[in-house]
Amino acid sequence: MVLNSNDMVHLALLSFFKGLIVLGIMLFHAAYTVYAERKIIGRIQSRLGPREVGPYGLLQPLADLVKLLTKEDILPKEADRFLFKLAPLLLLVTTIVNLSVIPFYPDFIIADVHVGILVILAFAGLGVYGVILGGYASGSKYSLLGGLRSAAQMLSYEIPLTVSLAGVILAAESFRLGDIVEAQANSLFGMNLFPQVIGFLVFLICAFAETNRAPFDLPEAESELVAGYMTEYSGFRMGLFFLGEYISMYVMALLISLCYLGGWSLPPWMLSLLPILKEIPPVLILLVKVYFFIFLFIWVRATFPRYRFDQLMRLSWKVLIPLSFLNLLIVMFFKLLT
């Protein structure tokens, strides 16, 4: 594309404001997901959850923010100062950038690139550095071991995740998430879920592991490694790690909805059954799907006990990876039939 400098400035400004909007909405969501999580888990465990700050505790995220900002920022004396400061930034930034290639509805995407899925995988791969460096730079044994364990966890679950995404790419023959959604809307079942149930389940389990959520929240396994690579972090730096976790939850939920559930489109048979569904704005459909997965994340956390580390590894290597390749085989077979 040959653009003159005027167009370039225009594009830059446009994407700057789009980025601001997305970032703002996402931060708001992340803050209130923490609140929702505490409320829902409280209800599940027949407690009330936060209710002191504001009506129904609705101002709780604000109070959390103030607390994180005013907490002391401790740099342990053995720490490698530069790397210690770099690690949470690396994790958070690589997570936020993923949002820029995710379409929220047909015309709203920050960077409309050909290789959307590759971008997400590339930045997810860079996120591993945040974990390892955070563990290494703290100068504490628990941190180092926790960092290595989390890194091993992320690496082992990235393989089944990416292989099951290969099934999605195969079905749509494109890397662009918008094309993937369109291909699903035109397909037989209206969503990728149906030929690829195995892939969907594998992706879901890996999404839990990639975001370090229960039942795979080994970094938060107090009984084993204190708080893993986050042990020595305090105040807002730890807040950055947490923010990264919640935003990556949203990235994963968005990815699942876009890749397997048809994103903002509804299956054709559903539309022909209930024509009134055509009137729903596409962004709402996507939001419902995303909120469902976020609720699932919270629900699972309140329900399942934590995996032990060797069980975690065994699950990935012995179950999920063979299953993901099986899924790929099935998709190839389907594709060759049609």
Binding site: V113, H114, V115, L118, V119, L121, A122, F123, A124, G125, L126, V128, Y129, I132, Y136, L144, L148, A151, L155, F175
Partner: peptide, 26 residues
Amino acid sequence: AEVLAFLQIIIYAGAILVLYLIMLLI
């Protein structure tokens, strides 16, 4: 070379260099 650009990050930065880093730590 968009595909190659991100494969470069995935393979070199995300896999090979991580292998080196884990090796160094271990």
